[in-house]
């Protein structure tokens, strides 16, 4: 079967900082740890003899499957981060995401309602930020994570300026 990319042809994508993968990994680690702990409760109970009726194989299989899934997700994170990209065209901003589920979004500057720059604790340590461009349509919110702070600020100013010059109301 054909495996051609869905990106529009002739677009020069700007990639986000590779260190954004670390931010994603921290988030991954917290989430994975919590679910793993929860799913390991039956195993602990069976091993300590509190809950004898529970089948041992299920008590082992559940955390094991989860662990496998989580490790696959971990391995994919750097590639997912590498798949994030954005491009500024004359009238609109393009953002792409995803490996398995690919998405490309185009948002006209003139439709912009406001721009957010968000910085989380891990972002701050790594000098990164996230730029979010909101429009009146909830599903046309362009989100670019993992930008170096200087680039994020530049992008925000740029978007604001272009949005103003191409203002189109609703």
């Amino acid at each position: 079967m054909r495996q051609e990319p869905i990106d529009p042809a002739g677009i020069q994508w700007t990639r986000v900082s590779p260190s954004y993968a670390k931010v994603r990994m921290v988030g991954w680690a917290i989430g994975a740890l919590i679910t793993l702990l929860v799913l390991s409760v039956p195993l602990v109970l069976v091993l300590t003899g509190v809950w004898d009726g529970f089948p041992l194989w299920l008590a082992i299989a559940a955390p094991a499957v989860l662990l496998a899934v989580e490790i696959t997700r971990l391995v994919l994170i750097p590639r997912q981060v590498a798949a994030i990209g954005y491009a500024e065209r004359e009238d609109d901003l393009l953002v792409r995401h995803g490996l398995m589920f690919q998405k490309v979004l185009v948002v006209p500057y003139g439709r912009m309602q406001f721009v957010d720059v968000a910085v989380g604790p891990i972002d701050r340590m790594l000098g990164l930020c996230k730029v979010k461009l909101h429009t009146a349509a909830a599903d046309a919110t362009a989100e670019i994570p993992g930008l170096p702070v200087a680039e994020g600020t530049r992008l925000r100013e740029q978007l604001a300026a272009r949005g103003e010059s191409r203002l189109a109301g609703l």
Partner: peptide, 27 residues
């Protein structure tokens, strides 16, 4: 009135070589 466009493709759609195009509009 186009607010934005979104092109998306999942694994199954990729096997069939198709994409979904959704036009963003207000709620």
């Amino acid at each position: 009135r186009t607010q934005g466009l979104r092109l998306s493709q999942g694994p199954l759609a990729r096997r069939f070589g198709v994409v979904d195009l959704s036009l963003a509009t207000i709620a």
